[in-house]
């Protein structure tokens, strides 16, 4: 039972990280109709910048404070220089060009920071653990990650329901022509949305820094999970991304933790671990396939 709650928290932590990644990307897909493979690169850039600044200054908060605007600015520059030219192109062109961006950024980080991964320490004031539920100590840092993720979700929710810019973005996601007809400055809106998306990706990268190794190519493993989240949630839907992210986070974490035990009930233990490892590694994709058969447009599609 204790283990179960701990795993739930782990799943939640992966889920909110995926939400930070997918919230911005699903908007980019939904509003600009552009497939951006390079979203993971901003996750990586966020982690690298934060790791470097933290190492130099000794302050994690300063690292965070530098990394967020840095990724947002780099994101908006990339939008203005490359992405903007791709909006009217075919998807296959967008795939090719953004794959080019991935190659460029991955190699650039190797040139700047070398091939060895960087390691980021958990800030001292978050290095302990707390007992949220009595008897279950859980690392403070991971709790902070969950808290930040949920705060961002709340912030996005308020932004989309209460503010003018949020409503404009939502209008853009569900009907581009309509948004243009309402006199919204589409070009600026696109740049802002892209900047917001990359900022969130950067935030996800910073928070993952102390948990994972910071290395070139780290963006791609999370990119695929982000895609799965977006497919499950429905393109263009931030709510869908939230639900999808938590689902994927939970299924992946719980699958890895408990499938071996489950399979040992039916199979010899040597066999069980192998089969369970295979099934667990495929579990979120199986989840995606099931949802796809049931609802090809995702759980909460923005375009009805």
């Amino acid at each position: 039972m204790l283990l179960f709650i701990e795993q739930i928290l782990n799943g939640l932590q992966l889920g909110v990280t995926l939400f930070l990644m997918s919230a911005g990307l699903t908007l980019v897909f939904g509003i600009m109709q552009v497939i951006n493979l390079a979203h993971g690169s901003f996750y990586m850039i966020g982690a690298y910048v934060a790791a470097t600044v933290t190492a130099l200054s000794g302050s994690f908060l300063l690292g965070l404070a530098v990394a967020l605007p840095a990724t947002a600015v780099i994101g908006m520059l990339v939008e203005a220089i490359v992405l903007r030219r791709l909006y009217k192109k075919e998807h296959v062109d967008q795939v090719l060009a953004t794959f080019g961006l991935i190659m460029f950024f991955n190699e650039l980080t190797r040139i700047i920071w070398g091939r060895q991964p960087l390691f980021m320490d958990v800030p001292s004031w978050l290095s302990g653990s707390v007992e949220l539920i009595p008897g279950i100590p859980y690392p403070s840092y991971r709790i902070a990650v969950i808290g930040v993720g949920l705060l961002v979700a709340l912030f996005l929710y308020l932004m989309f329901t209460r503010t003018r810019i949020g409503m404009q973005i939502r209008a853009g996601a569900s009907n581009r022509e309509m948004a243009g007809a309402l006199g919204i400055n589409i070009r600026l809106l696109y740049t802002l949305v892209f900047g917001l998306g990359t900022l969130l990706a950067g935030l996800a990268g910073v928070m993952a820094g102390p948990i994972l190794a910071v290395e070139a190519g780290m963006g791609e493993s999370i990119l695929i999970l982000t895609f799965v989240v977006i497919v499950i949630g429905g393109i263009g839907s931030v709510r869908g991304a939230f639900i999808g992210a938590l689902l994927v986070g939970m299924v992946d974490t719980l699958g890895r933790a408990f499938l071996p035990a489950l399979f040992r009930m039916f199979l010899s233990s040597a066999h069980a671990d192998g089969v369970a490892a295979s099934v667990a590694s495929m579990s979120i994709y199986i989840l995606m396939a099931i949802i796809l058969i049931w609802r090809p447009q995702g759980l909460l599609p923005a375009h009805s």
Partner: peptide
């Protein structure tokens, strides 16, 4: 069953699986 961006992401995801 899907097209466009969905198709790209889904083929990608199944290959990763």
């Amino acid at each position: 069953r899907t097209r466009g961006m969905h198709f790209i992401m889904i083929t990608l995801a199944f290959a990763q699986m």
